[in-house]
Design a binder for these strands. Structure first.
Ligand code: FES
Ligand code: FES
Lengths: 147, 147
DNA sequence: GGCATAAAGTACCAAAATAATCCTAAATTT
DNA sequence: AAATTTAGGATTATTTTGGTACTTTATGCC
């Protein structure tokens, strides 16, 4: 089915909301939880991960919270997915050098998988948070290059 | 991590082997199991699924087995992944009409997700079984369009 | 007709990945 | 010092996946 994890889905949703609310606005986990209806622990966890991944910046203590680390135009979907799901590796083979495949030894598919992997990642990299946050019906990036 | 299921990985490997062995050759589960080292039950299961999905054709009984339903050039990676993993739906939203998202109600991301979904699928659709089976180092499809 | 072979269908169990929660520590403001 | 808010880690429960087994149906051969 090739489905992203729920956390990733939620994470993109949260970042989109932050982007819409203003690129420089600060918000905190409790606030976002309240506005989205998502349970606070989950929101906290996701924001924490996004911060570790360098996509958000944090301020602790009273009045603390999170802000976007970069402008929405400079944060790609690939960044977000990468942080929340780890590096894309479609198959065992798709990684770089060592294929420790149990079966199909030397099936010679590494090159192909790696190429496909690269292309999929490029697609994700071409979509920015700004694109996701755009509320207009016509999104240049998404509609223009579509297939 | 965006990883395909093992069964999908194996399935593509099996079909690739079949394509390499000749587009019209017939083979059976036991034979393929022997050649790849994969356990017979698993091979059976995968071939069965591929057959149900219309990618293979089967002949029962003595001397029976499986053959490719179409020429490798006419079987895409999207076909194979679709059969073995179900229809691609990156997120809850990505499907067609109804978003029964628990949280983030009306986050307005359906259009974006659907577009991304379409583009990823198009990428998979552009790779054929023939491309996968090609043993040459330069694969027109994969290398030419790469990013 | 009966037997051997091979796929089709169904069901089940085990293992792994994921989601969700909780708790304690550290930082920062008032 | 007290209150707030993130950081980090660990735990538990749920779902998905992978793997296996068993029974049934179809086909060819003797
Ligand atoms: S599965 Fe490892 S080389 Fe193909
Ligand atoms: S999660 Fe359903 S509309 Fe966005």
């Amino acid at each position: 089915m090739i489905r992203l994890g729920k956390l990733t889905d939620y994470g993109v949703g949260l970042m989109t909301r932050m982007a819409r609310d203003g690129a420089d606005e600060q918000t905190n986990a409790r606030d976002l939880s309240g506005r989205t209806g998502m349970p606070l622990p989950t929101v906290s966890k996701i924001l924490k991960l996004l911060c570790q991944g360098g996509l958000l910046e944090s301020r602790r203590g009273v009045g603390g919270g999170y802000t976007l680390a970069r402008h929405p135009r400079d944060i790609s979907l690939a960044d977000m997915v990468g942080v929340l799901e780890g590096p894309m590796a479609l198959t065992e083979c798709a990684g770089e050098g060592d294929c420790k495949c149990e079966y199909l030894a030397d099936c010679g598919l590494q090159r192909q998988w790696a190429g496909i992997n690269r292309r999929l990642q490029a697609t994700l990299a071409s979509v920015t948070l700004a694109d996701m946050a755009a509320e207009t019906d016509s999104c240049p990036t998404l509609e223009g290059k579509g297939a």
